[in-house]
Design a protein around this nucleic acid. Sequence first.
DNA 1: CGGACCATTGACCATAGTCAACCGCCGTGG
DNA 2: CCACGGCGGTTGACTATGGTCAATGGTCCG
Lengths: 245, 245
Amino acid sequence: MADAPRILAEKLREHSRLSHADLAAIKLLPYKTRELSHNEDLIRQGDDPNVSALVVQGMLGRYHLLPNGRRQYLSFHMTGDLPDAQALFLDQMDHAVCAIGQAIVALLPHKDLLRTFEHRPKVGFAIWRETLIDAAIFREAITNNSARPPLRRMGHLFCELFYRAEVSGLTEAGGLELPISLSQFSDTLGMAIATVNRALARLRSSRAMEFRHGRLTVHNWPRLRDIGQFDPGYLHLRKSKPSPT
Amino acid sequence: MADAPRILAEKLREHSRLSHADLAAIKLLPYKTRELSHNEDLIRQGDDPNVSALVVQGMLGRYHLLPNGRRQYLSFHMTGDLPDAQALFLDQMDHAVCAIGQAIVALLPHKDLLRTFEHRPKVGFAIWRETLIDAAIFREAITNNSARPPLRRMGHLFCELFYRAEVSGLTEAGGLELPISLSQFSDTLGMAIATVNRALARLRSSRAMEFRHGRLTVHNWPRLRDIGQFDPGYLHLRKSKPSPT
DNA sequence: CGGACCATTGACCATAGTCAACCGCCGTGG
DNA sequence: CCACGGCGGTTGACTATGGTCAATGGTCCG
């Protein structure tokens, strides 16, 4: 069930073409699985891990720890994502990774990944591409948090999470589980909790979407897309858009 | 004088160790140089270039174009940087790159770079690392623009630019040329021009630094570092810190 | 000399942050 | 079993911060 190589191969297929030999090399990667409880840290700022994690189930988040103890969340990751692939080449973690709700990860030793890259460059390129998409998501977050007013800002985040889930086949009944608290949204979007809440209320009353009890349901995708000014180009995926509801 | 391979090799040495064979492969890379005038675009959003640029002289910036025509600047790049290395693996540019002041770039064909990577994986890994540091800078920008008040936000940006320049040996007389207008700072930091100006005035009166006529001069590095809450770890460089003034 | 652009500053105002109170839920422990 | 405390969400009132707007001056260039 936790067939990490298959999950990884599926993910890479979203943006890369791999040969049978490349896929075979991926299938051979050894790994261990680990279960994380809500809010548990997988890696801390300053660590130098020798494995990288693949999300198998649930959701992880990355965050900076600020001098005053508060957090700035940087991104959220779902099944198939490699939230710390960068640790393959950067010695010290400049941010931490924690579970958002309960989650399961597969841990892939760096040495096996690196050996595979030397042997099968295309596999390395696919994972490189994965890290580049990551960077594109960060760029979009800069723009989102710096240039969009609260309503659009929240809308855009929901658009991105929904779209990425849809492409990976992780949505059900027009929505997905998002065990993110208002306080975490606040630390993600740089808005006060009260503002987050008011933006959520406006999104609800616009009938574009609903976020309740840790679950996002999209009622009217085109409207939500417009509110968030969401253009999925920056995700660099090959698959088709979510169907309008 | 525009010896692009040497500049690239120097840059990669800031974070990676390369063998003689790797360096030799870099020396063989063919390239063309191009001069850019102030504000000229090198690549536009949506383009699919078949070369990547290395900054040889001057400064480039990356930016998102917003629906209302405004810009959100994402990062600034100086001699040695590869501001569009990501185009090696991502088909469409999700942002544009333009010159900040007059600049010279070397254009390296993707096909030659990719061939080198297959032949000398370590060269690929070094450039991969370069793109990962890029991503770390974007992450820091998320935090900067989302969690820091105006004075710290400006301070942090100046810290980063000064520190990076220092490590690359690009500073002179305790400062460097930064041909960035207040309006561009405004579009970088998500603050109104007036706020940018007032923050600059406060930085000046704090005697930590001065920004005048497109030139940054650092008078008191520890104080500036404190104001910007700057910790250079996220830049993942091996060299030593700038000396306090 | 005129115009464009950039920097600077003051006055005003809207937005979003802060604070406090309240609710509901859940888990814990008396 | 119930009481309590804590956490997350919701809402209203107040306030401060930073955005908007307008006017001014300087510089460069045509």
